[in-house]
Design a protein around this nucleic acid. Structure first.
Lengths: 224, 224
DNA sequence: TAGATTGTTAATCGATTAACAATC
DNA sequence: TAGATTGTTAATCGATTAACAATC
């Protein structure tokens, strides 16, 4: 039996599933734009649902899952929702990352200022191509890949961002794991194996394009 | 009642759902690496399932959904599976894309040779920054954003790849839509609105990082 | 108050998994 | 043949949606 007092017991929160995290990020972006455009301070679940083409009950359940309470007749305080998502997804925790691979993609990531909002700071960039060493990318001097273990320790790095070609990714991941990082964000077009305690998030750009290609095929007039 | 003859009736195939497409891409990558490493010609659903930590029945259903038949006791012909995925996902159809935004990310995408495998060819790159005009990126001369409509027609472009800052993305998308493209692949850190007949695939890098951040929070020793 | 909106339980839906017969 | 593996139906599970009471 549930009682009204359950309301406050945030310890009982169950971990969010992947689908929750993805939708919460959509709400987060949506509400930040909403507030940025100078709209009201409150927003209803049905407004969010309509913009994102979801069911409004789903929105309310997602918000309940991160402990946000709305007001009947009023809706949710947009700033409070943004805050709660920020906290629940772990953006208040600070993470320090090294970009491995000083190509264009590595440079784009190292230079992007938007990650700071999510608690992510790029603290270095390494590459194993001697031609790249010593260049400055987004105010980071490119250092040799061999320096990775030392950098991880000295700069208290817990995330490594891989932007290497497929054939170099596994070796770099191995070094990063040995050096003690806990998470790998990989943009390399291949899979990598790591011990179970290390989390890998793979950005499969080709999978993203596959969805587009499949849609185009389904909707193309010449059929089949 | 089903009969053996249903085997050949590919017209009855139902459209693949998103989860199917994503898993099929995993199988595709896995089997290409598998063959590349000189393993056998055949592979069983339980092998694939084990590598990807899925249920083997799920793998068989996915393969059945694209019309691949296996052999009892033998498994599936890896090359045939790769082929079927390639065809079903629409990689045989050729698409021509223009990259909008000549920054580091745009350059990385324009220069990446791997998209050719999926039927995607980059045929131009545009930017609205006068300083970028005339530069060559990956053998493409950077042209003004104003030239987009003409380029779309002349070069038979059906996909636009947005790599612009958030504030410029909607305007560029509008121009692309007016010029008649059918799909937008956006890397801009914002949402864009388009008419229903245009497909948008958004690569939310921050959502990718959010999953990592949440995992780190859940597994961090200091708890909470 | 009346009515809009939340919060929550119950129902539905779809996707995954289990079981097992078919088959090579 | 015996046995491994597929293909498919049935069962389960979880996520979404519907219904509706609670509430401000």
């Amino acid at each position: 039996m549930r009682t009204m007092n359950d309301r406050g017991s945030k310890d009982a929160k169950r971990p969010l599933r992947r689908a929750h995290v993805v939708r919460l990020m959509h709400y987060y972006h949506l509400l930040r734009e909403w507030i940025g455009r100078g709209n009201g301070d409150t927003v209803s679940s049905s407004q969010i649902a309509e913009w994102l083409e979801l069911d409004d009950t789903l929105v309310r359940k997602d918000l309940a899952a991160i402990g946000v309470r709305g007001c009947p007749r009023i809706g949710y305080a947009a700033a409070e929702v943004i805050d709660a998502i920020h906290k629940n997804l772990g953006f208040e925790d600070q993470h320090r990352a090294i970009v491995v691979g000083a190509g264009r993609l590595g440079g784009a990531i190292a230079a992007y200022p938007g990650f700071a909002r999510y608690g992510l700071t790029i603290v270095g960039i390494v590459d194993n191509d001697p031609d790249k060493l010593g260049q400055d990318i987004a105010e980071h001097r490119v250092l040799p890949l061999d320096a990775l273990p030392d950098l991880v320790r000295e700069r208290q790095v817990d995330v490594v961002i891989l932007t290497l070609p497929a054939e170099a990714a596994q070796d770099a991941a191995d070094r990063a794991v040995t050096a003690g990082i806990r998470a790998i964000w990989s943009f390399a077009p291949t899979s990598i194996s790591v011990p179970p305690e290390v989390k890998v998030r793979h950005e499969h750009l080709s999978t993203g394009f596959a969805e587009l290609a499949y849609h185009l095929k389904q909707t193309s007039p010449e059929g089949k």
